[in-house]
Protein backbone atom coordinates (compact mmCIF):
# COMPACT_ATOMS: atom_id res chain seq x y z
CA UNK A 1 0.00 0.00 0.00
CA UNK A 2 1.26 3.46 -0.78
CA UNK A 3 0.62 6.70 1.04
CA UNK A 4 -1.53 9.06 -1.02
CA UNK A 5 -1.96 11.93 1.45
CA UNK A 6 0.82 12.95 3.81
CA UNK A 7 0.45 15.88 6.23
CA UNK A 8 3.56 16.98 8.08
CA UNK A 9 3.65 19.43 11.00
CA UNK A 10 0.55 21.06 9.62
CA UNK A 11 -0.35 24.37 11.25
CA UNK A 12 -2.99 26.96 10.64
CA UNK A 13 -3.37 30.20 12.52
CA UNK A 14 -6.22 32.66 12.13
CA UNK A 15 -5.76 36.34 12.81
CA UNK A 16 -8.51 37.19 15.28
CA UNK A 17 -7.20 40.61 16.26
CA UNK A 18 -9.56 43.45 16.96
CA UNK A 19 -9.70 46.14 14.26
CA UNK A 20 -6.48 48.07 13.88
CA UNK A 21 -7.74 51.27 15.55
CA UNK A 22 -9.00 49.45 18.66
CA UNK A 23 -5.68 47.71 18.98
CA UNK A 24 -3.76 50.93 18.81
CA UNK A 25 -6.03 52.68 21.29
CA UNK A 26 -6.15 49.76 23.70
CA UNK A 27 -2.47 48.95 23.11
CA UNK A 28 -3.22 45.35 22.39
CA UNK A 29 -0.97 43.08 20.34
CA UNK A 30 -2.33 41.09 17.43
CA UNK A 31 -4.21 37.98 18.50
CA UNK A 32 -4.00 34.62 16.78
CA UNK A 33 -6.08 31.52 17.08
CA UNK A 34 -4.32 28.22 16.48
CA UNK A 35 -6.93 26.20 14.61
CA UNK A 36 -4.52 23.40 13.70
CA UNK A 37 -1.34 22.71 15.67
CA UNK A 38 1.44 20.52 14.31
CA UNK A 39 -0.73 17.78 12.92
CA UNK A 40 0.92 14.78 11.23
CA UNK A 41 -0.86 11.98 9.47
CA UNK A 42 -0.63 9.68 6.47
CA UNK A 43 -3.47 8.19 4.49
CA UNK A 44 -2.99 4.94 2.63
CA UNK A 45 -4.37 4.82 -0.88
CA UNK A 46 -7.78 3.17 -0.99
CA UNK A 47 -8.41 3.52 2.73
CA UNK A 48 -10.71 5.63 4.87
CA UNK A 49 -8.96 7.88 7.34
CA UNK A 50 -11.27 9.58 9.81
CA UNK A 51 -10.74 12.72 11.84
CA UNK A 52 -13.00 12.93 14.86
CA UNK A 53 -13.36 15.59 17.51
CA UNK A 54 -15.78 18.08 18.95
CA UNK A 55 -16.61 21.39 17.30
CA UNK A 56 -13.67 23.74 16.92
CA UNK A 57 -11.12 20.95 17.07
CA UNK A 58 -9.82 21.85 13.61
CA UNK A 59 -11.40 19.11 11.48
CA UNK A 60 -12.81 21.34 8.76
CA UNK A 61 -9.70 23.48 8.62
CA UNK A 62 -7.56 20.40 8.01
CA UNK A 63 -9.97 19.19 5.33
CA UNK A 64 -9.89 22.56 3.59
CA UNK A 65 -6.10 22.69 3.71
CA UNK A 66 -5.88 19.24 2.13
CA UNK A 67 -8.01 20.24 -0.85
CA UNK A 68 -6.43 23.69 -1.04
CA UNK A 69 -9.49 25.73 -0.06
CA UNK A 70 -7.45 27.37 2.65
CA UNK A 71 -3.69 27.74 2.97
CA UNK A 72 -1.47 26.22 5.62
CA UNK A 73 0.42 28.61 7.86
CA UNK A 74 3.17 26.05 8.26
CA UNK A 75 3.94 22.44 7.44
CA UNK A 76 3.38 20.48 4.27
CA UNK A 77 0.75 18.39 2.56
CA UNK A 78 1.81 15.91 -0.09
CA UNK A 79 -0.52 14.25 -2.54
CA UNK A 80 1.05 11.24 -4.23
CA UNK A 81 4.45 12.54 -3.12
CA UNK A 82 3.96 16.04 -4.51
CA UNK A 83 3.94 18.90 -2.00
CA UNK A 84 0.89 21.04 -2.71
CA UNK A 85 1.60 23.52 0.07
CA UNK A 86 4.64 25.09 -1.54
CA UNK A 87 4.75 27.75 -4.23
CA UNK A 88 7.08 26.39 -6.87
CA UNK A 89 6.15 23.83 -9.51
CA UNK A 90 2.72 25.38 -10.12
CA UNK A 91 1.88 22.95 -12.90
CA UNK A 92 2.68 19.92 -10.80
CA UNK A 93 0.71 21.26 -7.87
CA UNK A 94 -2.38 21.90 -9.94
CA UNK A 95 -2.10 18.41 -11.37
CA UNK A 96 -1.90 16.95 -7.85
CA UNK A 97 -4.86 19.08 -6.74
CA UNK A 98 -6.99 17.57 -9.46
CA UNK A 99 -6.88 14.30 -7.60
CA UNK A 100 -8.86 15.90 -4.77
CA UNK A 101 -12.50 16.71 -4.22
CA UNK A 102 -14.56 17.68 -1.21
CA UNK A 103 -18.10 17.00 0.06
CA UNK A 104 -19.59 19.28 2.69
CA UNK A 105 -22.05 18.89 5.53
CA UNK A 106 -24.77 21.12 4.25
CA UNK A 107 -26.16 19.80 0.98
CA UNK A 108 -28.47 22.84 0.83
CA UNK A 109 -25.80 25.51 0.96
CA UNK A 110 -23.30 23.77 -1.27
CA UNK A 111 -25.38 23.54 -4.45
CA UNK A 112 -26.01 26.62 -6.58
CA UNK A 113 -29.82 26.96 -6.57
CA UNK A 114 -29.91 28.56 -10.02
CA UNK A 115 -28.01 25.85 -11.80
CA UNK A 116 -29.52 22.71 -13.23
CA UNK A 117 -28.26 19.49 -11.68
CA UNK A 118 -26.63 18.63 -15.02
CA UNK A 119 -24.44 21.73 -14.93
CA UNK A 120 -23.65 21.33 -11.25
CA UNK A 121 -22.38 17.82 -11.80
CA UNK A 122 -20.50 18.58 -15.01
CA UNK A 123 -18.64 21.62 -13.62
CA UNK A 124 -15.61 19.90 -12.04
CA UNK A 125 -15.13 17.70 -15.11
CA UNK A 126 -15.34 20.73 -17.37
CA UNK A 127 -12.69 22.51 -15.31
CA UNK A 128 -10.39 19.55 -15.91
CA UNK A 129 -11.22 19.51 -19.58
CA UNK A 130 -12.82 16.07 -19.46
CA UNK A 131 -15.53 14.87 -21.82
CA UNK A 132 -18.89 15.73 -20.26
CA UNK A 133 -21.39 14.38 -22.76
CA UNK A 134 -23.65 11.93 -20.94
CA UNK A 135 -21.54 12.24 -17.80
CA UNK A 136 -24.14 13.82 -15.48
CA UNK A 137 -26.69 11.17 -16.42
CA UNK A 138 -24.25 8.35 -15.81
CA UNK A 139 -23.15 9.76 -12.47
CA UNK A 140 -26.73 10.35 -11.36
CA UNK A 141 -27.38 6.69 -11.94
CA UNK A 142 -24.25 5.74 -10.11
CA UNK A 143 -25.38 7.63 -6.99
CA UNK A 144 -28.86 6.12 -7.08
CA UNK A 145 -30.77 8.93 -8.77
CA UNK A 146 -32.30 8.86 -12.21
CA UNK A 147 -30.85 10.35 -15.42
CA UNK A 148 -33.98 12.48 -15.81
CA UNK A 149 -33.02 14.33 -12.64
CA UNK A 150 -30.31 16.12 -14.66
CA UNK A 151 -32.80 18.73 -15.82
CA UNK A 152 -34.09 19.57 -12.37
CA UNK A 153 -32.95 22.21 -9.88
CA UNK A 154 -31.56 21.50 -6.37
CA UNK A 155 -34.70 22.67 -4.56
CA UNK A 156 -36.64 19.79 -6.08
CA UNK A 157 -34.65 17.28 -4.01
CA UNK A 158 -34.66 16.15 -0.40
CA UNK A 159 -31.60 16.50 1.82
CA UNK A 160 -30.42 12.96 1.16
CA UNK A 161 -30.88 13.33 -2.59
CA UNK A 162 -28.96 16.59 -2.55
CA UNK A 163 -26.07 14.91 -0.79
CA UNK A 164 -26.13 12.30 -3.59
CA UNK A 165 -25.90 15.13 -6.10
CA UNK A 166 -22.91 16.53 -4.18
CA UNK A 167 -21.30 13.11 -4.36
CA UNK A 168 -21.95 12.88 -8.10
CA UNK A 169 -20.39 16.31 -8.55
CA UNK A 170 -17.36 15.28 -6.54
CA UNK A 171 -16.93 12.17 -8.69
CA UNK A 172 -17.16 13.97 -12.00
CA UNK A 173 -13.53 15.07 -12.11
CA UNK A 174 -12.42 11.50 -11.37
CA UNK A 175 -10.64 12.28 -8.10
CA UNK A 176 -8.58 9.77 -6.17
CA UNK A 177 -9.16 11.35 -2.78
CA UNK A 178 -12.40 12.81 -1.46
CA UNK A 179 -12.47 14.88 1.70
CA UNK A 180 -15.87 14.31 3.27
CA UNK A 181 -16.65 16.95 5.91
CA UNK A 182 -19.54 15.72 8.07
CA UNK A 183 -21.31 14.41 4.97
CA UNK A 184 -24.28 12.97 6.84
CA UNK A 185 -24.50 15.17 9.92
CA UNK A 186 -27.46 17.09 8.55
CA UNK A 187 -29.35 13.94 7.55
CA UNK A 188 -31.79 11.76 9.45
CA UNK A 189 -30.49 8.32 10.42
CA UNK A 190 -32.51 6.39 7.89
CA UNK A 191 -31.20 8.63 5.11
CA UNK A 192 -27.72 8.68 6.63
CA UNK A 193 -27.48 4.93 6.29
CA UNK A 194 -28.37 5.15 2.59
CA UNK A 195 -25.72 7.78 1.95
CA UNK A 196 -23.04 5.98 3.97
CA UNK A 197 -23.75 2.75 2.12
CA UNK A 198 -23.49 4.60 -1.19
CA UNK A 199 -20.15 6.07 -0.12
CA UNK A 200 -18.82 2.65 0.87
CA UNK A 201 -19.95 1.14 -2.43
CA UNK A 202 -18.33 3.91 -4.46
CA UNK A 203 -15.13 3.67 -2.51
CA UNK A 204 -14.90 -0.01 -3.29
CA UNK A 205 -15.93 0.25 -6.94
CA UNK A 206 -13.67 3.18 -7.76
CA UNK A 207 -10.82 2.51 -5.35
CA UNK A 208 -11.30 5.91 -3.71
CA UNK A 209 -9.52 7.23 -0.66
CA UNK A 210 -11.58 9.16 1.88
CA UNK A 211 -10.54 11.68 4.47
CA UNK A 212 -13.71 11.32 6.49
CA UNK A 213 -14.47 14.08 8.99
CA UNK A 214 -17.14 13.62 11.62
CA UNK A 215 -18.00 14.39 15.21
CA UNK A 216 -20.08 11.19 15.38
CA UNK A 217 -18.12 8.27 16.78
CA UNK A 218 -20.61 5.67 15.61
CA UNK A 219 -20.37 6.87 12.03
CA UNK A 220 -16.60 7.00 12.22
CA UNK A 221 -16.45 3.50 13.65
CA UNK A 222 -18.51 2.24 10.75
CA UNK A 223 -16.60 3.99 7.98
CA UNK A 224 -12.97 4.30 9.02
CA UNK A 225 -9.90 2.12 8.72
CA UNK A 226 -7.78 4.48 10.78
CA UNK A 227 -8.90 7.24 13.11
CA UNK A 228 -7.26 10.43 14.35
CA UNK A 229 -8.73 12.14 17.41
CA UNK A 230 -8.40 15.92 17.54
CA UNK A 231 -8.65 18.22 20.53
CA UNK A 232 -8.18 21.98 20.24
CA UNK A 233 -6.40 21.67 16.91
CA UNK A 234 -3.97 18.96 17.96
CA UNK A 235 -3.94 15.27 17.16
CA UNK A 236 -4.07 13.57 20.55
CA UNK A 237 -4.40 9.95 19.45
CA UNK A 238 -4.34 7.96 16.24
CA UNK A 239 -4.88 4.25 15.76
CA UNK A 240 -6.42 1.67 13.47
CA UNK A 241 -10.15 1.53 14.14
CA UNK A 242 -10.15 -1.82 15.92
CA UNK A 243 -7.35 -0.77 18.23
CA UNK A 244 -8.88 2.58 19.06
CA UNK A 245 -12.27 1.16 19.95
CA UNK A 246 -10.87 -1.81 21.82
CA UNK A 247 -8.38 0.20 23.86
CA UNK A 248 -8.58 3.98 23.66
CA UNK A 249 -5.51 5.35 25.42
CA UNK A 250 -5.75 9.12 25.60
CA UNK A 251 -7.90 10.45 28.47
CA UNK A 252 -9.77 12.71 26.03
CA UNK A 253 -10.57 9.80 23.71
CA UNK A 254 -11.84 7.89 26.71
CA UNK A 255 -13.99 10.79 27.83
CA UNK A 256 -15.43 11.13 24.35
CA UNK A 257 -16.23 7.41 24.14
CA UNK A 258 -17.85 7.42 27.53
CA UNK A 259 -19.94 10.51 26.86
CA UNK A 260 -21.38 9.30 23.56
CA UNK A 261 -24.94 8.09 24.09
CA UNK A 262 -25.45 4.37 23.59
CA UNK A 263 -28.42 2.62 22.09
CA UNK A 264 -28.26 0.07 24.88
CA UNK A 265 -27.46 2.62 27.57
CA UNK A 266 -30.80 2.26 29.32
CA UNK A 267 -30.73 4.35 32.49
CA UNK A 268 -26.95 4.56 32.28
CA UNK A 269 -25.42 6.99 34.77
CA UNK A 270 -22.21 8.20 33.21
CA UNK A 271 -19.14 9.78 34.73
CA UNK A 272 -20.10 13.26 33.71
CA UNK A 273 -17.28 14.86 31.72
CA UNK A 274 -15.57 17.74 33.47
CA UNK A 275 -15.66 21.25 32.09
CA UNK A 276 -15.94 22.48 28.53
CA UNK A 277 -13.64 23.09 25.60
CA UNK A 278 -11.48 26.08 26.53
CA UNK A 279 -11.10 29.31 24.59
CA UNK A 280 -8.89 28.45 21.59
CA UNK A 281 -7.37 31.93 21.56
CA UNK A 282 -5.89 31.39 25.02
CA UNK A 283 -5.50 27.62 25.25
CA UNK A 284 -4.26 26.16 28.55
CA UNK A 285 -0.45 25.77 28.71
CA UNK A 286 1.21 22.36 28.67
CA UNK A 287 -1.28 19.71 27.65
CA UNK A 288 -4.34 21.65 26.54
CA UNK A 289 -6.59 18.94 27.98
CA UNK A 290 -5.24 19.26 31.52
CA UNK A 291 -8.06 21.35 33.06
CA UNK A 292 -10.49 18.54 32.22
CA UNK A 293 -8.25 15.54 32.63
CA UNK A 294 -8.67 13.16 35.57
CA UNK A 295 -5.02 12.08 35.28
CA UNK A 296 -3.45 15.52 35.08
CA UNK A 297 -0.30 16.20 37.12
CA UNK A 298 1.86 19.29 37.50
CA UNK A 299 3.95 18.11 34.55
CA UNK A 300 0.84 18.28 32.34
CA UNK A 301 0.27 21.91 33.25
CA UNK A 302 3.60 23.07 31.92
CA UNK A 303 5.00 20.63 29.39
CA UNK A 304 3.27 19.84 26.15
CA UNK A 305 3.30 16.06 25.63
CA UNK A 306 4.94 14.68 22.48
CA UNK A 307 3.48 12.05 20.20
CA UNK A 308 4.59 8.54 21.21
CA UNK A 309 4.07 5.18 19.59
CA UNK A 310 2.51 2.51 21.79
CA UNK A 311 1.77 -0.66 19.86
CA UNK A 312 0.06 0.61 16.72
CA UNK A 313 -1.34 3.66 18.50
CA UNK A 314 0.20 7.11 18.33
CA UNK A 315 -0.74 9.10 21.42
CA UNK A 316 0.31 12.39 22.98
CA UNK A 317 -0.05 12.13 26.73
CA UNK A 318 2.47 12.09 29.56
CA UNK A 319 0.68 9.43 31.55
CA UNK A 320 -0.48 6.54 29.37
Amino acid sequence: MSVIVRAKALRRLFDVSKPWLNRVVEREPKAFLTAVADVDFEIEEGSVYALVGESGSGKSTIGKMVVGLTSATDGTIEIDGIAITGNDQKAKISEARQKLQMIFQDPYASLNPRWKVRDIIAEPAKLRGLEIKGLPERLLQQVGLSPEDADKYPHEFSGGQRQRICIARALSSEPKVIVCDEPTSALDVSVQSQVLNLMSDLQEQLGLTYLFISHDLTVVEHMADKIGVLYLGALVEEAPKETLFASPLHPYTRMLFDAAPRLDGFGREIDVPKGEIPDPINPPPGCSFHPRCPLATSLCKTVRPQMRLIGDTRVSCHHV
Binding site: V189, S190, Q192, S193, Q194, L196, N197, S200, D201, D216, T218, V219, E221, H222, R262, L263
Partner: peptide, 16 residues
Protein backbone atom coordinates in the same frame (compact mmCIF):
# COMPACT_ATOMS: atom_id res chain seq x y z
CA UNK B 1 -30.09 1.83 10.28
CA UNK B 2 -28.05 3.31 13.14
CA UNK B 3 -24.37 2.46 12.79
CA UNK B 4 -24.40 1.02 16.31
CA UNK B 5 -27.04 -1.57 15.54
CA UNK B 6 -25.19 -2.59 12.40
CA UNK B 7 -21.87 -2.80 14.21
CA UNK B 8 -19.51 -5.11 12.36
CA UNK B 9 -21.67 -5.25 9.23
CA UNK B 10 -20.08 -4.05 6.03
CA UNK B 11 -23.18 -2.19 4.92
CA UNK B 12 -25.71 -0.55 7.18
CA UNK B 13 -29.25 -1.75 7.07
CA UNK B 14 -31.34 0.84 5.38
CA UNK B 15 -34.94 1.87 4.94
CA UNK B 16 -35.63 2.61 1.29
Amino acid sequence: STPLASRGLKRLKQIP
